[in-house]
Amino acid sequence: MATFTVRGKNIEITPSLREYVEKRVGKVTKYFENVGDISVLLTVSKGRHIVEVTVPVQGGILLRGEEATMDMYTSIDLVVEKLERQIHKQKTKLARRFRGGGFKAEALQSSVIPEKQEDEEYKVVKTKRFIVKPMDVQEAVMQMNLLNHNFFVFRDSETEEVNVVYKRTDGNYGLIESGN
């Protein structure tokens, strides 16, 4: 039986809410023999109900999911679906890694989530082309905000490297630098 650490931020964790979290999130334990302490953080921020789940599994594997909706119970359900999709998507790699046991591949057979075929390729439905102009980070952030995008690709005017600036959920900005 897995142990749970359920914490709340701007929300009181009622016994019924804790029970629902343990019941729903506990579903992911059926795929593995040894699961560590499952960490669940429930947050209410600006009317959004955010659920963050971290599930450590033997062998150093970490499953993590986050969902945000206007309803806490819906967020919990969606994050469980997300974790199960992760398991299905990586089932071959997981089975290989747990060759000596620990991963219950048979649990995947009873699940209703459609699985991706091994030889199936990812389908690209749209391609966009654009010129990556040289600019500094501050100019790239300004351009991103003017375009009302969450990220912006630019060429650093000093290093000529292609980088990405992005808007973080906390309102700050991040930079992804290309490197060798």
Rank of each mutant, 00 (worst) to 15 (best):
K93D: 07
L83V: 01
G102P: 06
D77I: 10
V53N: 05
G100H: 11
T54V: 10
Y122L: 06
G101C: 08
R85D: 04
Y122K: 08
Q58R: 08
H49S: 08
V112C: 02
I87Q: 08
V79D: 01
V124W: 00
K128R: 12
L94Q: 03
Q58N: 01
E84H: 02
I61H: 08
A107K: 13
R85M: 06
V44F: 06
E84R: 11
D71G: 12
A68G: 11
G60Y: 05
Q90M: 12
P114G: 03
V79Q: 03
I113C: 10
V79P: 01
G102Q: 02
G60V: 06
I131D: 14
H49Y: 07
T74N: 07
R97L: 09
V112D: 13
G59F: 12
S45W: 10
P114S: 09
T69I: 00
L41W: 06
G102M: 05
L41V: 03
D77S: 07
K46C: 12
G47H: 03
R129W: 15
M70E: 15
Y122S: 13
Y122A: 12
K46V: 00
Y73S: 09
I76Q: 08
S110Y: 10
E52I: 00
K123V: 13
G59S: 04
I87M: 06
K128L: 14
Q117E: 09
A105K: 05
L78E: 12
K82M: 05
L63A: 05
T54R: 10
E67C: 09
I61D: 04
A105D: 05
H88K: 11
L78N: 12
V55D: 04
D119V: 10
V132H: 00
R129E: 14
S45F: 14
H49T: 07
V124H: 05
V132E: 01
R97W: 15
V57A: 07
G47Y: 01
G101H: 13
D119N: 15
E121L: 14
R48T: 03
Q109K: 13
D77V: 13
Q109P: 02
R129Y: 11
A95P: 00
K104F: 15
